[in-house]
Simulated scan of single mutants.
Amino acid sequence: MHNSDREEEMEINSKDVSLRELRDRLAEFARVRGWEQYHSPRNLLLALVGEVGELSEIFQWKGEVERGLPNWSADDKEHLEEELSDVLLYLVQLADVCGLDLGQAALTKILKNAQKYPVNDVSPTASSTYN
């Protein structure tokens, strides 16, 4: 498959993209560019932190924002999508380089949180946290 064919294949839109598919596409993206040598856990973590900082800057001076971002411009929403995507992609890469199944780990964490915070113990006004 020619490089441009591969890049076009990566542009395919799908409603339900799995973490496994993202992981595989990211690994291929890095492999064909020779970037694997730079993708140590430390380097990926530092890149992730940098991207979280860029994501934070988007919200820094906006105050509270309504769900669905009804007052945001299309450009602002696109910028947010890009920064969220950067964070997700570095997180997926970091988990992969560490040999972890991020999807399974997330499901396991949801189950642990369900045990830690049973439905009967949650007040309707309590804010949700996942830690």
Results as ranks from 00 to 15, higher is better:
88 L>Y: 04
65 V>G: 03
60 Q>T: 07
54 E>V: 01
111 L>C: 11
29 F>M: 05
58 I>L: 13
118 P>M: 00
59 F>R: 04
112 K>T: 06
20 R>A: 10
100 L>E: 05
7 E>P: 06
13 N>T: 13
41 P>S: 01
98 C>Q: 10
46 L>M: 13
1 M>C: 08
116 K>H: 11
13 N>H: 14
112 K>E: 14
70 P>K: 02
118 P>L: 00
113 N>M: 13
77 K>G: 00
84 L>Y: 02
41 P>L: 02
44 L>C: 03
28 E>P: 08
36 E>Y: 03
66 E>L: 09
1 M>N: 11
130 Y>T: 07
22 L>Q: 06
43 N>V: 05
90 Y>K: 01
2 H>N: 12
21 E>M: 08
63 G>M: 01
120 N>A: 15
18 S>L: 02
54 E>M: 02
79 H>I: 08
110 I>W: 08
65 V>Y: 06
57 E>N: 12
57 E>W: 11
73 S>D: 01
58 I>G: 04
22 L>S: 05
129 T>N: 14
54 E>I: 02
82 E>H: 05
98 C>N: 08
73 S>T: 02
109 K>A: 06
91 L>M: 13
94 L>A: 03
114 A>Y: 10
121 D>I: 13
25 R>N: 07
116 K>W: 06
75 D>R: 03
8 E>M: 14
118 P>T: 00
11 E>P: 06
27 A>F: 06
9 E>R: 15
82 E>F: 00
99 G>Y: 01
127 S>R: 15
121 D>P: 07
17 V>W: 06
21 E>W: 10
115 Q>P: 06
93 Q>W: 12
106 A>N: 13
64 E>D: 14
122 V>R: 15
65 V>K: 06
67 R>D: 15
76 D>Q: 02
125 T>S: 15
33 R>T: 00
80 L>P: 06
34 G>C: 02
69 L>R: 04
107 L>K: 15
108 T>G: 13
43 N>W: 07
74 A>C: 03
75 D>C: 02
57 E>F: 11
80 L>M: 05
6 R>C: 07
84 L>M: 10
69 L>Y: 08
2 H>G: 05
83 E>G: 01
60 Q>G: 11
15 K>N: 14
125 T>D: 13
15 K>Q: 12
67 R>W: 10
116 K>R: 14
45 L>D: 03
35 W>L: 13
32 V>H: 10
81 E>T: 09
75 D>Q: 07
42 R>H: 09
122 V>W: 15
103 G>A: 04
121 D>E: 12
114 A>T: 11
10 M>R: 15
95 A>S: 05
23 R>F: 02
55 L>P: 05
7 E>F: 15
89 L>F: 14
114 A>W: 12
